[in-house]
């Protein structure tokens, strides 16, 4: 999906757990996530800490969108 939206003209970042799959299907900006059942969370952490973790991931994704790249890049 990331590839097709990027092809349509909107810069797209893919936050996903299994980076090789994202590479295979052709996302350009890739941010590795935490785990398949909770890509942007970690249930073993206290709520507050978990949200900070999530925020850090989304901020990393925003930075990825603001970064110039020439090929598929994992941030």
């Amino acid at each position: 999906m990331a590839k097709e939206i990027e092809r349509a003209g909107i810069p797209t970042v893919h936050i996903c757990t299994i980076v090789p799959i994202s590479r295979t299907v052709g996302a350009n900006r890739i941010v590795p996530a935490i785990a398949i059942p909770h890509p942007l969370g970690n249930p073993t952490k206290p709520k507050k800490e978990e949200k900070l973790l999530r925020k850090a991931l989304v901020e990393k994704a925003l930075r990825a969108l603001e970064t110039k790249i020439d090929e598929q890049t994992v941030f």
Binding site: A2, A8, G9, T12, I15, A33, P37
Partner: peptide, 21 residues
Amino acid sequence: AREIATELIADGVRAVIITST
């Protein structure tokens, strides 16, 4: 994705985050 992108472009969206499990 192509259908979604068409709507997003029409509505002026300039950046997308996709999350996957």
